[in-house]
């Protein structure tokens, strides 16, 4: 049995299979890149959205929240928070943190300016408009 199962053939299958499926992956990626503009509405990415994403990143929001389901599971999903709560609520909420309620999960105070809060909302609004194949299942995220 071992004569007809050779290491050389196993190795060839490894290299061949890896290259083959990576090429397939590149092909699918290429198609995805062609299709994405229709789904992510990149024409709506304003300077404000760009700045908002930067604020999102430099406050490490992903360390507690999920965004489109990715991140930490300590705090609510924010991919659809704009549709759930609306812009003014989001601004007021961020500005009012932390709640200080004893024993409850706390969100830090980031001392964002009004402009920065607007950028944050713009980013979350744009995110809520991405075509995510109807995810999340309901408004609670």
């Amino acid at each position: 049995m071992s004569e007809t199962f050779t290491k050389a053939m196993a190795r060839n299958i490894f290299y061949g299979g890896a290259v083959f499926f990576f090429l397939l992956f590149l092909g699918l990626t290429f198609d995805t890149m062609q299709t994405l503009p229709k789904r992510d509405h990149r024409e709506n990415i304003t300077d404000s959205v760009v700045r908002g994403k930067h604020i999102w990143e430099t406050r490490d929001c992903i360390g507690c929240h999920t965004l489109l389901g990715e991140g930490a599971y300590f705090a609510p999903e924010l991919g659809n928070v704009y549709t759930r709560r609306g812009g003014p609520f989001i601004k007021a909420w961020i500005a009012a943190q932390p709640t200080g309620a004893p024993g409850r999960r706390q969100m830090p105070q980031f001392n964002l300016t009004d402009q920065e809060l607007d950028d944050m909302v713009a980013f979350l609004k744009w995110t809520s408009e991405v075509n995510t194949n109807k995810w999340p299942p309901n408004i609670e995220g």
């Binding site: 360390g63 200080g100 024993g103 999960r105 706390q106 969100m107 830090p108």
Partner: peptide, 11 residues
Amino acid sequence: GDFLFPAIPFN
């Protein structure tokens, strides 16, 4: 929830 807050926030 507020254990070690604000010294070490969850994130």
